[in-house]
Structure formats: C-alpha cells, structure tokens
Amino acid sequence: MNNIKKNRLKDQAFKVWGIFCTLLGLVLLSIFIGNILIDGILRIDWEFVMNLPSRHAEESGIFTALMGSIWILLLTTVIALPIGIAAAIYLEEYSKKNKLSSILEVNISNLAGVPSIIYGLLGLEVFVRILEMGASVLAGSCTLALLILPIVIVSTREAIKAVPKSIRDASFAMGASKWQTVYHQLLPASFGGILTGIILALSRAVGETAPLIVIGALAYVPFAPESPMDQFSVLPIQIFNWITRPQHGFVENAAAAIIILLLITFVMNGIAVYFRNRWQKKFK
C-alpha cells in the first residue's frame, strides 16, 4: 500500500507544480508591468505625448514616433488587407486540389515562421534600394504588410471556412456564380472573423521593431511624417533608442512610452477578442 500512497503524493505534488508553472509567467509579467508603471506612469502627461524627441530627456516626447506608428499602421492595412483577403478567397473557394495549391499552402506556412528581421532585409533590398522608395513610410509599410500577410490570409481563411456549407449550397442552387456567392454571402458572413484577424495582425505590427530598423527607420526623427515618402520613426524604435541612452531620464521616458505602447497593444487585442466573440455568437 506504500506504493499507492507514494503515487498519490507525486500526483498531488505535480498538481501544485502545474499551478505554479501556469501562474509563473503571468506573475512575472505582472511584476514587469508593475515595475514599468512605477518607473514611467508619472512621466506621462500631455506634453510627453506632444513633444518631439530631444537630447534632453525631460523635453523629449513621443509625438513623432506616435505619428509614425499611426502612419505605418494605416498604410500597412491598406496594402495587406486587399491582397490577404483576395489570396484567402482564392485558396478557400477557387483553388483545386492540385500541385499549385499544396505549394501555396506549404509556402504560406513557411512564411509565417520566417523571422521578422529577414523581412527587413527583403524590404531593404527591394523596397528601399531597387524600387527606390528610400527609408520611407511607404517602404516600411510594404515591408510590414508582407510580414503580416500570412496572418491575414490564415485568419481570413478560417473565417470563410466557418460559414456553413449549406449557405453555399443554397446560393449555388439559386444560380449564383462563384463570385456572387463569395461577395454576397461569404464575405458578409465572415466579416467579423476577418476583422478580428486583421486587428490581431496589426497589434503585432505596431510592436515590430527589427524590420523597420533594418530598412532604415531612424531612431531620431525631428518631424512627423506628412507623406508616405517621408522618413519616419515608430514607437518601439523610439523606446529602443531611449533604452540605449545612459542618462536615467531616458529610462523613465522609455518606461512611459512602453506604457503607452502596451496600452495600444492590449486595447487592440481586446477589441479583436470582442469582435471574435460577437461574430461567433452569430452562428449559434
């Protein structure tokens, strides 16, 4: 009977260990965030948001970086959304089970796993140099659009797949063409899922640093972009820049900017989850 008792103890011990592990990551994250809040919350005021970066920590602000991030987000959406949705529609509704479609599938799966910095190298050669866009907002957006393209495609496909086959049957039986069925039935029905996907993809894009550094986004930009061809900076790069400065004032700035970046990221994630729940209810 000793053996059974030993096994039960081990079982209970693992249960405790399991709970510990589950909470460990979240506890650590809370500690980090708490730490950041302590470091940075007092630094945040309207001036911080509206100021341009400067050599003096107390006068520095995130205005140009924030504007840059907004520009990048909007332009990236404009580029990635149509291509991603079109590709997803093709793969889900038009492609047949042939060699091409399996190549497309493997390829997208592979692209999703390519490190973001490699996309930066691609963007540097193709967009900045060959297409001569320079280190502009446009080049940055094209690069990030390619980065998030697999995410948009996969989530759009999932959303379209979730529309029941009976809807397609009903539409075809009425003599609708494939495109009419996609346009009138499938896209409206999967709208919520598609929206969720794009918001999640963008919340990833807003935090991307490495590819934009590689294409030449500057760490010190004294102006907000006014056209897609302007140079730019983004919030994460501004944070990175401040972290590398030795003066303590910049650490506070970095912490404050991080709070704002986290706020943006979590709000976007929250909105995406909200839409996903609303959309899933639609089919119940």
């Binding site: 994250l29 730490n35 990833r204 935090g207 944070i239 970095a254 970046l261 990221t265």
Partner: peptide, 15 residues
Amino acid sequence: LELLAAVPTVVYGFF
C-alpha cells in the same frame, strides 16, 4: 497565457 506572446519584444528587452 497567450498575452505573454502578445507583448512587443522591445518591452521584453527592457525587462
């Protein structure tokens, strides 16, 4: 838990 993966890496770097 998925939240852990959503934090921008520059923030993790700071930590």
